[in-house]
Structures are given as structure tokens and as C-alpha cells.
Design a protein around this nucleic acid. Structure first.
Lengths: 146, 146
DNA sequence: CTTTCATTTGAGAATCATTTGCAACAAGAA
DNA sequence: TTCTTGTTGCAAATGATTCTCAAATGAAAG
């Protein structure tokens, strides 16, 4: 059993839940994605295995709570996620024109945020830094705004 | 005419649009709120003046583009906004348990972000730093998770 | 293996914030 | 006035997410 599967199983058991085949399949699919994904994209990947979209939606919050995935940007009315494997904390730069998503390291900000958290006595579960605007491509020439 | 109204009018004219009574009313309502608000809350405030919810939804993006309001946190499936007046950039700390929203200054991070933007040649329109987790109240005693 | 009992699941219906289509309007230009 | 273009309220449409429910499954104990 792979590392993150063990982690998920442990998390589920702590809540009296089980690592069912469907859940394992969803987890696997999530970790097979090396970019952002949304519920629909995940579903496309596994619907052949007879896993319903409802179950995908039911499992996503569990993965979130287990700390195995994070919610990142929201595009076109859809929540996007990404798994944590090899994804150190990063900021998302979202171009309003071409919808491109650029990622950058967050470590420069990390310490400032942690310090603030200590002052607030806040227990951080997730940090999400999204900066929207225009990427270098759309900023100059491509004035086809909208 | 108030300052932000002038600003909105100017913005609209630049796109060949007009500052209609409905739009002015929505702008006014948005600036009368001194906390976060969502479309519905705004609508409640002005429906007596015969402004439709559809127009509220149509105007929100305009205010956003004009830089007069920002989209902040998303709670209960609803987008929340806030006007910029007297609201310097800040982070939102969202408690997953009691849904409280705490705001803190962003200036400590501002420079790091600006530096990164320069490197990326990215034209920043909006910065949104949301940190979710547990506030000091819910972190300790209140273990009524979920 | 069988019973028990809580958890899970797929399928489809239901929700609910947000968008859109449309016909009536308003305002400026010609 | 007439043409054109943007605007609005209303109602209907959309679309992601959630819920319902009866059937299936799983773990534990006999």
C-alpha cells in the first residue's frame, strides 16, 4: 500500500470510516494528476470503474481534511484541487485574460504568516494565496480583454 | 458626487457604459457596508428601490474590474466581497469550525509579493490571502468538529 | 459461514447561487 | 422623430454541488 494510502486509511479509521475501493480509487486518481484538477476531471478518470460523481464529491472533503489535497483556485465556478505530493506550499497567479495559472514558491512568505498565526493563536490548516491580474503575455499586446 | 462614484463613472465611460441609477444605488449600498457582503445581502438593502437581483449580479463584476470592491472569502457557497474604502490589503483567517473571519494586515507580505510580481512580469489586480484552520476559541475546548 | 448493524454507494432528484434571454426602456446622435 | 446601443426587471435556464433512498458492503462476533 502506498504511502498516502496508508495516511488516508489511518485518517479514516480515526473517524470510524473505511478505506473502501471507491475511496482508494479516488485517492489514486487524485495523486495521478500532476496539475490542478476539479471534481469533474477526477470523475472522468474513474467513471469507467463504476465510481459515481456523488462519491467523488463525498470523498473530496475527506481528502481535504486528511491533508492529502488542498483546494487551490476557483475557475469557471469550479473548485480546483491539487495533491500535496511534491507540491510544497505555493502561490497561484491567475491571469484574468488567458486563465493561465502560474505557481510560485511560498517559502518567502511562510515565516511572516507563521508569526502572525502565533500571535492570533490560530491553528493553520491551509494557506491559499491567489493573485489575479494579467500575465506577461496578456499584459502587453493581447488587449482582447474579456 | 462622492469620490468613488466619480471613479466608477470614469471607469464605466471608458468602456462605453453609463452610471445608471441602479448602478449608483448598488455602489452606494456596497460602500455603506462595513463588513463583508454577498450579492444577496446587497440586494436586501436595495430591493425596495426596485433594483433587481440580476442587476446586482451584473454590476458586481463591474465594481470588481473598476477596483472598487474585491472578492474575499467564499462561505457557504457564496462569494463575498468588500469595498476598498479604509480597507487596506489584508489577509482573511477563516475558522473552519465557527466560520469566524479574522482580518490582519498584509503589508508585511506586500513587498515580497511585489518583488515576485516584478520577476514574473505580472500585473497584479488583486491579492487574496486566505488562511483556513481553527481560531483560538475552537482550537482548544470546542472539539465539536464538523 | 451467518447475523448484525453501521457505513457506503450509485442513480437520480433537488438545491441554490449565478447567468441569460427577452421584451420594454432610456438616452444620445443624426 | 428615428436609429442605435446600452440597461433593466422578470422569469427561465444553467450548472456545480448536495441530498435522498434503497440496496450493497464490510467488519466483528457468534
Amino acid at each position: 500500500m502506498i504511502d498516502h494510502e496508508v495516511q488516508f486509511k489511518r485518517f479514516l479509521q480515526k473517524q470510524g470510516l473505511k478505506l473502501t475501493p471507491s475511496r482508494a480509487r479516488i485517492l489514486e486518481a487524485a495523486f495521478s494528476m500532476h496539475e490542478h484538477f476539479d471534481a469533474e476531471k477526477l470523475y472522468d478518470l474513474i467513471k469507467a470503474d463504476n465510481v459515481s460523481l456523488a462519491t467523488v464529491y463525498r470523498t473530496l472533503p475527506l481528502l481535504l481534511e486528511a491533508g492529502l489535497i488542498t483546494r487551490t483556485v476557483r475557475i469557471g465556478g469550479r473548485d480546483r484541487f491539487e495533491h500535496i505530493l511534491g507540491h510544497p506550499r505555493h502561490a497561484h497567479w491567475l491571469c484574468e485574460n488567458c486563465q493561465a495559472v502560474i505557481e510560485t514558491d511560498l517559502s518567502a512568505l511562510q515565516s511572516a504568516i507563521t508569526k502572525e498565526a502565533k500571535a492570533l493563536k490560530f491553528d493553520i490548516r491551509q494557506i491559499s494565496l491567489n493573485i489575479s491580474g494579467l500575465c506577461w503575455k496578456c499584459k502587453d499586446g493581447a488587449n482582447d480583454s474579456q
